[in-house]
Nucleic acid binder design. Structure first.
Lengths: 347, 347
DNA sequence: TTGTAGGCGTTATCAT
DNA sequence: ATGATAACGCCTACAA
């Protein structure tokens, strides 16, 4: 026999002089309970400082009001904004959020999925780690009845799964066209790992825009980074800017590398935007306040976070409905033109 | 009677031909179980795809492996880095993290505390919201046996509580001395709400340094902001720079306002650092890459996050120990000198 | 409208 | 070394 720790419904029942079922119903606002009894029970609960044990409720109902959020890292602009908005929306809908950082490790992603399954979360919102190539761990969760929504870094390989994405191809196309409009002709590209759909799409969009404009698509101007870190941006910028046939613009697949590219150009004495145009994907909070300010593609982190939660909870609540329709939602991005590509200086 | 949903230890027991107690022990690596039986049970569990229900374990043991983290907002540099490190450390120690954003609202902080109590988390790591002036909700959690560690924004009013802080007074003193060494003589200060200990301490440090140097401490050069937002920084900068007797340096209590101060000075045609020195507390990720780069006081978010988790889990594990010693840990900050205060331009 | 009792999936206390 | 069974705290058919 274990020690009883905190006050439970039995204590409240005793205090109020009713049965535990009445207490349970009164506290859950069951319409069958008379207003009078309800008041009595609530008073008793309050005076004893009763706090319902969500664990017990969860075990009993086989439901929980928590959702797991799987992201690679929390201290990057876009993802922290995304999680911020997810948490905000979830709170408004009565859910708590368990945050899991995968560090872009497939192993860790799997470990966390097991933890979340064990915790019997109601659903999971996930951004795939850069390493992820197989999805058994996600299927496992789905088989256990845990709902899943993929955001941003998704895979089309997973069917019957709601996805919230931006049109990476289109955004990249437009960003490249912007460079071309600004008069840049020799455009290089820094890509992330193309086994990730978003990076493949972004690269495709870039290539398409280059082709459409009849510009050269030199392979030596297309570089790859496995993690798109600040340091990697510096390395690639150095490589590109040391070429005999030097590009006069660089499109980077994230914002961090755009910033390190600009910083490195300065070190090399190359002027941005005059001698080198730079544009980056997914802006960081201070892109606007750098000098030059950084042209970038804004991802709608607020809409993405909100929709992810709404769709997830929708699916959770439609539990009986075999006909639930899994959607792939594509959101618009916004090209924020700033100084780093402003060669034409209008006005 | 409800439908049985997932495979449980009864199923495993049946499959392995043993009792549920044996299954439970085998899965928890109890030394009393023979290696042979263990193997048999594990095989059965694996083949059935058994995943232990952490909810049931938690109910039975009255313990849980999750900690709640209470912060004001996730999309600000320091806090997102702090939560990043908390999550990272917690994961390494076998704990999950529930993230709660208070939005600096006292009400929301209370709501979340109730949720966390209901969820029976093992402990809570909290950064006080700017509004918080009473602490009953924290005491309530402690009475329920939930351990608590306060980080950064703490209060000395709460005794018997571990606190992880920086020496705000000292950091502010040193920052101000740096300005003075750089030759700035008319120094203004933008403070946060001084009912928050950290802002009171920072202001004290500032005033002390000014006095020590025999410089004027003009009240019109000391301004307050309730939220230290970007916009508020602009507003205060405008007020200060419109004064007849204009300050030639501004120390701001966070980094965001330092950045908006610099941006606004530029709008007004005031040169930083030549005509105006600017230094800010708690640097944001890109302080180094702005132009001018922003001198700031670096808070050790990694050490703070790690220590918070370690101390918390230490306390959780020392549950029987009435003599647990609650510490207040004060960590060193680092003054990062950059261009925004570099009037002397050595080299 | 309220009460009784069984069940959710574990762990832990007895036995054997 | 293993098994039977009572907790943990709540919800919910079924009864009254």
């Amino acid at each position: 026999m274990k020690k009883k720790t905190r006050v439970n419904i039995y204590d409240v029942a005793a205090e109020a002089g009713v049965s535990i079922s009445t207490v349970s119903r009164a506290l859950n606002d069951d319409p069958r309970i008379s207003a009078k009894t309800k008041a009595k029970v609530q008073a008793a609960a309050k005076m004893l400082g009763f706090q319902k044990n969500a664990i017990a409720t969860s075990l009993s109902t086989n439901q929980s009001k928590v959702i797991g959020v799987l992201v690679s890292e929390l201290n990057r602009g876009f993802l922290s904004a995304l999680v911020h908005n997810i948490e905000e929306t979830a709170f408004g809908m009565g859910y708590s959020v368990i945050v899991c950082q995968t560090n872009n490790s497939h192993e860790r992603e799997k470990t966390y999925m097991d933890t979340l399954i064990a915790s019997r979360v109601a659903g999971i919102i996930a951004t795939l780690s850069l390493e992820t190539e197989s999805f058994e761990h996600f299927y496992k969760a789905k088989e256990q009845g845990i709902k899943l929504v993929l955001v941003d870094r998704v895979t089309n390989a997973m069917k019957e799964t709601t996805k919230i994405v931006i049109d990476d191809y289109q955004a990249s196309l437009e960003g490249t066209q912007h460079l071309i409009e600004q008069g840049y002709t020799k455009i290089a590209y820094l890509s992330g790992p193309t086994k990730q759909l978003i990076y493949a799409d972004r690269l495709r969009g870039f290539e398409q825009a280059i082709k459409q404009a009849g510009l050269p698509l030199k392979q030596e101007w297309i570089k790859y980074s496995s993690n798109l870190s600040f340091a990697d941006g510096t390395r690639v910028a150095d490589e590109l800017l040391s070429l005999k046939d030097r590009p006069n613009a660089i499109f980077t697949a994230n914002n961090l590398t755009a910033i390190s590219t600009i910083a490195h150009a300065e070190v090399l004495g190359i002027k941005v935007p005059e001698q080198l145009g730079v544009i980056g994907f997914s802006e960081e909070p201070f892109s606007a306040f750098m000098k030059p300010s950084v042209t970038s593609i804004r991802q709608p982190s607020k809409a993405m976070g909100q929709l992810a939660v709404q769709k997830l909870i929708e699916e959770i609540n439609s539990d009986q409905d075999e006909n639930y329709i899994h959607q792939k939602v594509v959101l618009d991005t916004e090209l924020i033109c700033r100084q780093s590509t402003n060669r034409k200086k209008p006005g």
